[in-house]
């Protein structure tokens, strides 16, 4: 299925995109970790409060509000026990969008960058509908000195509009002879990891075509800081299958390298390399308890994206909430 991200980014949602957002909204975008928010929301926070959801009992200490004394427990045991409830808050979804040159690959269908923008839009809309804040981070080799956080966190309607506008205006780097694109995502993730941010959700939209060691390091830091990390791996089927025939010249999108090859001879070897790479990514991300999903840029993203959402929802319920 072809999805035209540009269309709904400009304000008119295609039926497919609208359905994707609606179904995502039903499933909800919940953090699986404890997050810190500014306002009260429906997301579990590490703090104890006095809302609806029971958390624990504890001994009364002077100064506690007597309203929270569990009188029933006192009647049974003649001890003063305070009944505590979990405090619920909102969270910030940091969307890290890879717009390096490699994301411009489209084959004969939607470019990977467009898919990243589409899924960013869905994420932002769902989060906004939950009252959560969203921030937009950009990984690009075009201007290495620029702050990767191009749209700071905000949960107001104006913030969402600003983010969507900026998201819609993003384009993948044009083919360049510089090597900045080769580390742009790592730099953006490193920047995010190094900042003192409330614990929230980090969603990475990228083809991950960088040195994996340079990416997994910042991802570990992000997880170590308590962020819920979701990696949406956007690839094109061509990159997985290498389906070309005859004599082909491959021009690198991020360097001047040009290679003449006959794909038929390489295909098996290439697929093995890709499989090894993906296994390594999945293994490393599983190890740091980050979520991973593969989205093909040339196919309908609904299935893999909604699978991810549903999977997270199930995990959240079985774990009883964060």
């Amino acid at each position: 299925m072809q999805v035209r991200a540009e269309t709904f980014l400009n304000g008119t949602l295609s039926p497919v995109a609208a359905e994707l957002i609606e179904r995502s909204r039903i499933l909800g975008l919940r953090a699986l970790t404890l997050v810190d928010g500014i306002r009260v929301g429906d997301q579990a926070s590490p703090r104890r409060g006095f809302s609806v959801e029971f958390a624990q009992h504890r001994e009364y200490v002077p100064g506690d509000d007597l309203r929270h004394l569990d009188w029933r427990a006192y009647a049974r045991s003649e001890r003063l026990i305070i009944k505590e409830y979990r405090q619920e808050t909102n969270f910030t979804a940091h969307m890290v969008t890879d717009m390096t040159g490699s994301m411009s690959y489209s084959g004969s269908s939607l470019a990977k960058s467009s898919m990243a923008k589409l899924l960013g839009l869905v994420t932002a809309r769902v989060a906004s509908s939950q009252g959560d804040a969203t921030a937009l981070w950009l990984a690009s080799g075009a201007n290495p000195s620029q702050d990767p956080c191009i749209v700071p966190a905000g949960s107001r309607a104006g913030s969402l509009l600003s983010l969507l506008t900026r998201l819609g205006s993003l384009d993948a780097d044009p083919p360049t002879e510089t090597a900045h694109s080769k580390s742009a995502l790592g730099l953006a993730l490193g920047s995010l990891a190094s900042r003192s941010l409330r614990r929230g959700m980090v969603v990475v939209f990228s083809d991950l075509l960088e040195d994996w060691d340079g990416l997994i390091g910042p991802m570990r830091q992000i997880r170590a800081k308590g962020h819920d990390l979701i990696v949406v791996h956007i690839v094109h089927s061509d990159e997985l299958e290498l389906p070309f025939k005859g004599e082909v010249r491959f021009d690198d999108l991020e360097s001047p390298i040009k290679v003449l090859a006959r794909p038929h001879q390489l295909r098996d070897r290439y697929r093995k390399e890709i499989a090894t790479w993906r296994n390594r990514i999945e293994g490393d991300l599983t190890a740091i308890r980050a979520d991973y999903t593969l989205v093909r840029a040339d196919l309908d993203p609904s299935e893999s994206w909604l699978d991810l959402m549903a999977h997270r929802m199930v995990r959240r319920k079985t774990s009883g909430g964060a």
């Binding site: 690959y105 094109h236 999108l253 390298i257």
Partner: peptide
Amino acid sequence: HRSRPTVVPWAAMEFLLKSIKETQAA
């Protein structure tokens, strides 16, 4: 044939180069 190949802009060059290197002799 060699002088008229199909040109494809490519992203996953790292894996391609590695595959070529390993299959060149065969």
